[in-house]
Design a protein around this nucleic acid. Sequence first.
DNA 1: CTTAACCTGAACAGATATGTTCGAGTTACA
DNA 2: TGTAACTCGAACATATCTGTTCAGGTTAAG
Lengths: 217, 217
Amino acid sequence: MVATSPGSGGKPKSAPSPAGAHGERRADARRNIRSILDAARSCLTRDADASVADIAKAAGVGRVTLYGHFGTRADLVDAVLTQTVEEADATLDATDTTGDPRWALTRLVGASWQIVHEFQSVLLAAQRELPAERIRAVHDRILRRVETIIEAGQSAGVFRDDLPNRWLVTTVFSLMHAAAEDSAAGRLDAKDAPEVIGATLLAALTAPGAAVPTATP
Amino acid sequence: MVATSPGSGGKPKSAPSPAGAHGERRADARRNIRSILDAARSCLTRDADASVADIAKAAGVGRVTLYGHFGTRADLVDAVLTQTVEEADATLDATDTTGDPRWALTRLVGASWQIVHEFQSVLLAAQRELPAERIRAVHDRILRRVETIIEAGQSAGVFRDDLPNRWLVTTVFSLMHAAAEDSAAGRLDAKDAPEVIGATLLAALTAPGAAVPTATP
DNA sequence: CTTAACCTGAACAGATATGTTCGAGTTACA
DNA sequence: TGTAACTCGAACATATCTGTTCAGGTTAAG
């Protein structure tokens, strides 16, 4: 037996917990986990259906080793998604979300676009393997960020208040990912995307009766 | 041999063409094709990953019979998608798209919603099996319809002209399907959807500097 | 009625994954 | 340097689905 603790007798799936609790693995193990995660992201970015074997090979690691760290393909995909989203979240941490909520949103879109665009395929893989609620949960922090900006805009009277906020958040995400798809299909130039998305969202969030803001200053 | 003409020697896939050209099949064959198509739509609506065996059983037909009519699972999914979209297109034919393009669009959204909502899972199945370009092609007529309304709105000066039209079309579709997902996840009441989508789109399509229209008269 | 089209279940062929197990070899680390 | 953690490849065990073939039974249609 490698690392799977044979404690409980249930399904041995998705519980390769190696040492005690976490983080106390050997140096080479940690190194391999990194390699696997990197390779997985790289492979899934190119092909959302990349097999575990492909990923292991790309990581320069045996398939068995991979399964020693990730009990299931789904676990691996989950880990990659989580890591990627956390990275995006870190980027957003460095983004100014103060001032006029309209430009705050514009900045947020601009900062997110790169990652949404590049790792679109990872999300696709997740959508095929993970339950929708899980994906939603992973995005929770980012979702909240968007909601906060929307609420700020509503308080400031520059964003509409006549639709459910959850829907407005959905709108933001939906258009970002739609742009990523259009970009992948060659229907939208990636470099134009942030501006296009921003312009669309700014209008979409404007209250009926109010004027759509013209351009980001 | 059942119906597959052994004419050419290439791959016998996706070419179960039975009789001469088309339509000249026996009555029971036509009946079964209908059953299969209906069952497939029903099954795929509940589960986008429904197997061919499930569909055949639901259709009250042997699996072999199914393969006699549809060379491949992909062919079947394609047929179901095509039929569904054509149905939607027929509905849109009965929809008034004259008059103010803003309300024409609202009406179009309202007429489409029911089908988009109900058969969302069929689209999902198609996205897993068919190339994106094919899906796009199937939607061609509907896509064009939307584009026509957008152009009309631009000519009338009520829709924005500062973004690529293709993107505006994408926006319309994206929000419709996002609403379907939100609805399936219980985040949006299906009966509110047409109004919510319409209100969002009307704003999104408004030109910078102009006022967002208030409500459908 | 006669025949060719059609249907049938069962069984075969094959691909393609995912996980797991094994025995033996490395490597980190105290 | 000893030992436990870790890794390796290969093979095994499923599983699951897609397509295909067969041999014989129905049914539509002229």
